[in-house]
Simulated scan of single mutants.
Amino acid sequence: MSSTTYAWCFDHGTLHHFHAPDEPWCTAAWVPFRAASEEQAMEAKQHAYGDARFFDELPGDKQLEVIEIRETWTSTAGPAF
């Protein structure tokens, strides 16, 4: 059984779909969301980051948040989101 991790990519300005058990293929600044569907992921993205599509559209505190989330993901070999 395969599961999908939905992640907003602030480098590409789009929602990525990563399918387990494969490793995420994008090495850019993306944030995963706990979501069962693309629609839920987009709602979570809107709630957390508003209309920002790209990294430079985020305020400083949100930029740091994205960096920290990405570092956590890569240092723990991908937590289940």
Rank of each mutant, 00 (worst) to 15 (best):
M1P: 00
M1Q: 01
T4R: 12
T5C: 01
Y6V: 11
W8S: 07
W8D: 03
W8I: 10
C9S: 11
F10D: 01
F10K: 01
F10Q: 01
F10W: 04
D11E: 08
T14P: 02
L15A: 10
L15C: 11
H17W: 03
H17P: 00
H17V: 00
H17D: 03
F18Q: 10
F18Y: 15
H19Q: 07
H19Y: 08
H19R: 10
H19D: 03
A20G: 05
A20H: 08
P21D: 02
D22T: 06
E23N: 03
P24A: 11
W25T: 12
W25N: 04
C26S: 05
T27H: 14
A28R: 11
A28P: 00
A28S: 13
A29V: 05
A29G: 01
A29C: 06
W30H: 14
W30Y: 09
V31D: 08
V31G: 13
V31L: 03
P32N: 07
P32F: 02
P32I: 06
P32C: 06
F33P: 15
R34M: 08
A35V: 08
A36T: 04
A36Q: 13
S37Y: 05
S37R: 03
E38R: 08
E38Y: 05
E39K: 12
M42Q: 14
M42F: 07
E43D: 08
E43R: 14
A44E: 15
A44H: 11
K45H: 14
K45E: 08
Q46L: 15
Q46D: 09
H47K: 15
H47W: 01
H47Y: 01
A48N: 12
A48Y: 00
A48Q: 13
A48L: 10
Y49K: 14
Y49M: 14
G50K: 11
G50D: 09
G50E: 10
D51V: 15
D51Q: 12
D51C: 09
A52S: 11
R53P: 00
F55Y: 14
D56S: 09
D56E: 13
D56V: 06
D56K: 10
E57H: 08
P59V: 11
P59L: 07
G60I: 09
G60E: 15
G60Q: 14
D61V: 04
D61Y: 14
D61P: 07
D61T: 05
Q63E: 09
Q63D: 02
L64N: 09
L64T: 15
L64A: 13
L64Y: 01
E65C: 06
E65N: 13
V66G: 13
I67M: 11
I67E: 04
I67H: 01
I69M: 05
I69H: 00
R70P: 08
R70Y: 02
R70H: 05
R70D: 06
E71M: 01
W73F: 09
S75E: 04
S75C: 07
T76D: 07
A77T: 13
A77Q: 12
A77G: 12
G78D: 02
G78A: 07
P79C: 02
P79V: 04
P79D: 01
P79K: 04
P79A: 04
A80M: 06
A80W: 00
F81A: 14
